[in-house]
């Protein structure tokens, strides 16, 4: 059984149809990359998968681990193992960074019938993962993302992912705004988490990220549909030719 199976997905925002019949299948252990022009619907797809209610699904079906993802609330999807690293992480003044992650971890643990972690169990783990991502200790008690630099916000997303250990991680342009060192650090964090039980959906505009995180499949999303799919070499080709259709165009192709 595939980890994620998207069939004929149509979704709209405020009456505008953004996703127009999207098909995609991810198996556990795979890394898929989605590329595509601005406004083509990449973040919309990510938001629908994370169950943002402002995006209305008008047609299609999404199965996650065999369960109907579209029936789930955002918190249920998260507890089932969906994680979205936001393109624009939001600042939440007044809620401490570590406190927030611990609350999230405990919510997920509770969902799975596990005991809650107290601060004593949690903090060492949190600080250790922070160190891997070369994040400043001072960020532990700062409010969630408040006053973080662009790069710090993105690293904070990856830190949360590392703590919550999802089955499916969707990274929405995690590379944008990162300098080359930060990019390497983030990629290291992601690669450390690759494994047979986990899949990644990496949304990006740049080959640069894919030099570090080698995808198994690359898909091109244009105007709400996947118009091409291929292996890692497709990303390189796109660097040269752009997102326009090519002779090798295979609409709606699914990875073998």
């Amino acid at each position: 059984m595939a980890l994620l199976e998207i069939q004929d997905l149509h979704a709209s925002v405020e009456g505008h149809e953004i996703l127009k019949g999207l098909n995609l299948t991810l198996n556990a252990g795979e890394v898929h990359s989605i590329m595509g022009p601005n406004g083509s619907g990449k973040s919309t797809l990510a938001a629908v998968l994370a169950r943002r209610e402002t995006y209305e699904v008008t047609r299609g079906r999404v199965l996650f681990n065999g369960k109907d993802l579209l029936e789930m609330k955002p918190e249920d999807a998260a507890c089932e193992g969906v994680f979205l690293a936001f393109q624009y992480p939001v600042e939440i003044p007044g809620i401490g960074n570590a406190y927030f992650v611990r609350s999230a971890m405990n919510a997920i643990r509770k969902f799975h019938g596990q005991d809650e972690l107290d601060a004593m169990d949690f903090l060492p783990l949190y600080k250790e993962r922070m160190k891997i991502l070369e994040m400043d200790d001072k960020l532990v008690n700062r409010s969630v993302n408040e006053g973080f630099s662009g790069g710090e916000k993105k690293r904070n997303e990856i830190l949360q992912m590392a703590m919550l250990e999802p089955k499916l991680a969707i990274l929405d342009e995690t590379d944008s705004g990162l300098d080359i060192d930060a990019l390497r650090i983030v990629a290291k964090g992601v690669n450390a988490m690759r494994g047979p039980d986990r899949a990644f959906l990496v949304i990006t505009h740049y080959q640069r990220l894919l030099d570090y995180i080698t995808p198994d499949f690359v898909h091109v999303l244009v105007d709400g549909k996947i118009v091409r799919s291929g292996g890692p070499e497709l990303a390189l080709e796109l660097e040269d030719t752009g997102y326009g259709p090519s002779e090798a165009d295979v609409p709606q192709a699914l990875p073998a």
Binding site: A50, R51, R52, E53, T54, K73, P74, E75, A77, A78, C79, F83, L84, F86, P89, V90, I92, F100, V101, S103, A104, M105, A107, I108, F111, V144, Q160, L164
Partner: peptide
């Protein structure tokens, strides 16, 4: 709504 969604997307249920 954005802040609420951010928290929920991490597994924290709506009321919390």
């Amino acid at each position: 709504e954005e802040q609420l969604f951010y928290l929920r997307s991490r597994g924290i249920e709506e009321t919390s």
